[in-house]
Every structure is written in structure tokens, then in C-alpha cells.
Design a protein around this nucleic acid. Sequence first.
DNA 1: TAGATTGTTAATCGATTAACAATC
DNA 2: TAGATTGTTAATCGATTAACAATC
Lengths: 205, 205
Amino acid sequence: MEKRISSAVIHRMPRYFRHLCDLQDAGIARISSGTLADRMGLTASQVRQDFNCFGGFGQQGYGYNVAELRSAIAGIMHIDRERGAIIVGTGNLGKALMSNFNFQKYGVRLVAAFDSNPLLIGTEIAGVPVYSCRQMEEVMEREQPQIAILTLPKMHARAAAQKLVAAGIKGIWNFTSIDLHLDMPNVPVENVHFSESLMVLSYKI
Amino acid sequence: MEKRISSAVIHRMPRYFRHLCDLQDAGIARISSGTLADRMGLTASQVRQDFNCFGGFGQQGYGYNVAELRSAIAGIMHIDRERGAIIVGTGNLGKALMSNFNFQKYGVRLVAAFDSNPLLIGTEIAGVPVYSCRQMEEVMEREQPQIAILTLPKMHARAAAQKLVAAGIKGIWNFTSIDLHLDMPNVPVENVHFSESLMVLSYKI
DNA sequence: TAGATTGTTAATCGATTAACAATC
DNA sequence: TAGATTGTTAATCGATTAACAATC
């Protein structure tokens, strides 16, 4: 058992999830691997192989039930339970996430924001209280968040990450342009590097 | 000749570029495939294979010249020439990009922003003039931008993309959560889907 | 020169695709 | 039942790794 799921499969799951949400919103109840593959630019084989990494969600002669498959994927990706998160740095990018991103859809609840600007401390952004970075341990203790979102200036990112890991954070969603990866092996980090996709776009043009 | 470069290689190039910039900033003039590989979590073989897709940048017994390799990659990715870009939607995310992202480093010059909010039209954000969406064709004609950055509400994204392509845009950097991919085959699109990396993080925790 | 490290070919590994029997 | 479509095995393809001769 316990066959290791390849990273390629894991990275396709969020796209399946998004398409299944769209299908569900459009009132479509069932879909075949072929139709889903066409829609997403994959092959039917690949779609079936991917889902069969996690067990048989389909039914021969029928296809897949959209709602069922969608919630199976939510379960696989663990976005069906609620996790607390904090956001560090409430500049434009932090604010953009706080006010536009649908955290709830991905099982995440923002419990606190941190900033060094004294004018912001004590205020709320999108309903989330803003604390001083010096209150970090105290808030962590109280709220027990699992995820830290780093939207602070690059120069402070590494120190903040270390402090957060020491205080018990379980995963880091990193929007700064440094690679946090290699120095904290037991805490997963997902880096969002805008420049990477811009460079790829530039190459493709 | 003209051996097709694999997508895996293309997607690693931005990371090489970033690490080479860091090395250069740190005053390091040369690096071997092995040292670079360790730093990036790759193998030496892979590093050499990757660079040899584009020609021999190294020197036996010495390694690679950091500055030279860095600018070779900039050339390969076409970020060494200047391209105009426009940004559509100046909410928090658009503003965050305009004020924090180092476009120049990637060969991109923001020439105009568009928004539907009458209060913003005629103002400037981070030195870039904000226009009404109705002025789009006129501004496109004058500035001839190649890249459109979509940071507008999801519901308007597809229509905006179509209008921009019709007006001659060459590539789309899409920050909305819809997949623009499949309907405009000749204009490359890079999608930045925040939710995908959050879901992967959630899975890894 | 000797040591280091590349460029490149060959071997391995893993992921995608094809095929088809099972079955709803 | 007949038709459709899955689950799954086998075949193919491509990407990564290993090895080593070339050479700075």
C-alpha cells in the first residue's frame, strides 16, 4: 500500500478541483474522463490514472460524479478541515490577499495579521486584527495557527520564517522572492515567485 | 538543429536566473555545476544538461562564469530587451504589483494601467498613468505594449483578454482564477493561480 | 603537468499514453 | 442486453542520472 504519490499528480489536483468547482457551479452532475481531459488539455488516460492514485471514484459506463469527485479531492488535499493562518506583512500584497482571496474555499481561516507599521497595529483589515510583530508568540500561543503567509519585505523573510517555525507553525506560504526551501526541511514551504511565470511568458512570446 | 526545449527545462531557467543574481550580488564570480546543484537541490548532471540545451556556457576545469551565465539566461528568456506592458485592474493586487514588483529586472516597462473606477482615471500609480478601459485601443495604438497583466475581477477577465488580443497584445500574465489557456492558442498565457500553491501546501502539511 | 570540471553519450528511472478486459 | 466508460496492465516516451572522455 501507501504508494507514493508523484509530485506531478499532486500539482494537477488543484486544477482538477478548480474545474470540478466550475462544473458544479454550472450544474453539471457527471463527467467522463474524456470530457474532463478535453476541457483541461490532458488525456483521458492521464485523468483516470491520476484519480486512481487515490482509489476508484468513477463508475464504468457512467463516468465520475462531479460533486463526489470534487469533495474527494478536497479531502485528499486536506482543504475540507479548517486550519488557522496568519499573514505577516500587510502591504499592498498582504491586503490584496486579505480582501480578495477566498481563504474559506481552501479550508483556511485568517486569524491574525502582523505588521511593523504602528499606525496599522490595533486596526482591522478585511475583518482580521493587525498585531505588532512583537505580539507574535502571544498570538500564536492563543490561536494555534498552522499556516504562515509571508507577504513582508524580502530582507525580513528568513528571520520571520525561523521565528514562526520555532513558535510551531506547520507550513509556510511564501510570497517573497527568496527560496526558503532548503533550510527548514521539516516544515513545507510553497513559494509563489511571480517573476518565474513572467520569465516563462517572456520566453514564450 | 532547433532541438525543442522541454517545458521542464524552461521552468527551471527562472530559478537558475534568480540564484545566479544572488551569487552575483554576493560577489561570487564562478560556480561549478555541483555547487550550484547543491544550492538549488538539483543534481550536477541536470544542471549541465539544462545549460547544454542552449550551448556550452562552461569551461572544463573551471566551471561557469556567474555573470556570463546570468546574462546568457537573460538572453534565452528574452528579458534582456525592453517590452511594454499594461496592467488591467488597479485594485490591491494590481497596486501591489505596480509598486513592489521589479519589472525592469525582467525587461518589462509598465506603460499604462486601466481601471473602471472614475476616481482613479487620470491619476498615476507608482508613476504609471491610469486610463479608462474605454481608452484601451487608443493607448494600445500609441504605446504598442506586448504584455497585458490581468488583475481585474474574474468575471471581466475573458472579455478583456479577447479585446486585448484583438488589439494586438502578444502575451497575457493572468492573475485571475480562470483558465484562459485553451481559447486563444496563438497568444501565450501564464496563469498565476494562488489557490494552487495553497492547496499543495495544505496537502504537504 | 595534474586536477578539476565540463560536454555528451548511455543507462535508468518515472510519467504519460495506449489498449482492453471488467462492469455499470 | 448493448453501449459506455472505468480501472488497470503493458508499451512508449521523455526526463533524470550516471559515467567518462575531452579539455581547460
